[in-house]
């Protein structure tokens, strides 16, 4: 029993130490941003691999999520004769919740795990160490552009997800199930607020972008430099990022829409 409590304590201490390392790491990454202004090429290359390469899964998922919402929403609303509100139902659920959250989860799986694995492998093959010995700070040269690219990509991807999703709902609701075209858009426009709904959704995805990319680059950088260590860092990235996104989503939702 005593041994169990001791282990609990040891685990707690090591988790706190990791949190401290993660925060120091973040500060160093932020210190690397000014250097990026002089080297925009580094950021562009990362926007490619973090943002553009995630586009496909985001568009396809957004389309299907919107179509499913259209179908489910229609079946529920038609019982109340309120199928004209389909546009509102689809738009609000996507813009407020599903857009930012599903994008963040997909992003963690697609780009986050790739970032963690790439950085972990660079560490395991002594590339980071080699850079240090060439008097190049790997946090500035490798981590900072990747972090910034993730932070920029997330809201853009979430916006694309939301827009595609709403058109997916439109396709199912209006084109297949016969909801009135004008009602779909006008009800939506009447109920969806630019600041309360859309801006808050963007704020959510900015927060998620920050946290998910932070977890990914830190887990990669902090990985034990062996193939096992890298694979565990990749797994942890996805798991921690998912927890962080869902937990933060609750907190943010309570703050934004809770009054």
């Amino acid at each position: 029993m005593l041994e169990f409590i001791r282990q609990l304590g040891r685990g707690g201490i090591s988790q706190f130490a990791k949190l401290g390392r993660a925060n120091l790491f973040m500060l160093k990454v932020l210190a690397g941003f000014p250097g990026l202004l002089r080297r925009p090429g580094l950021l562009v290359a990362q926007l490619w691999s973090v943002g553009v390469l995630s586009l496909m899964i985001i568009v396809v998922s957004g389309l299907f999520v919107g179509m499913v919402l259209g179908l489910q929403g229609y079946n529920t609303l038609v019982d109340f004769g309120a199928e004209e509100s389909l546009g509102v139902a689809v738009a609000l659920s996507i813009v407020r919740e599903l857009g930012p959250v599903v994008t963040a989860l997909l992003f963690a799986g697609r780009a986050g795990s790739a970032l963690a694995a790439e950085i972990g492998l660079m560490k395991a093959t002594e590339q980071l160490s080699g850079m240090e010995m060439m008097a190049v700070d790997p946090i500035h040269r490798v981590i900072a552009p990747r972090f910034l690219a993730g932070f920029i990509s997330m809201p853009l991807l979430a916006a694309i997800f939301s827009a595609v999703g709403i058109y997916g709902g439109y396709f199912v609701g209006v084109a297949l199930l016969g909801v009135d075209d004008g009602a779909y858009w006008s009800q939506m426009q009447a109920k969806v607020d630019l600041f309360d709904d859309i801006l808050n959704g963007v704020i959510k995805s900015l927060v998620f972008g920050w946290v998910v990319t932070w977890i990914a680059v830190f887990e990669g950088y902090d990985a034990i430099p062996t193939s096992e260590g890298v694979s565990r860092a990749t797994t942890r990235t996805v798991v921690y990022a998912a927890f962080a996104v869902l937990g933060l989503d609750f907190v943010l939702t309570a703050l934004m829409f809770g009054d």
Binding site: S153, P155, L156, S162, A163, V192, I198
Partner: peptide, 18 residues
């Protein structure tokens, strides 16, 4: 990619919201 993201935000603002 960046243009598409900004366009999506624009669509959300103009077409979806009030």
């Amino acid at each position: 990619f960046i243009a598409a993201g900004l366009a999506a935000l624009f669509v959300l603002a103009m077409q979806v919201s009030n």
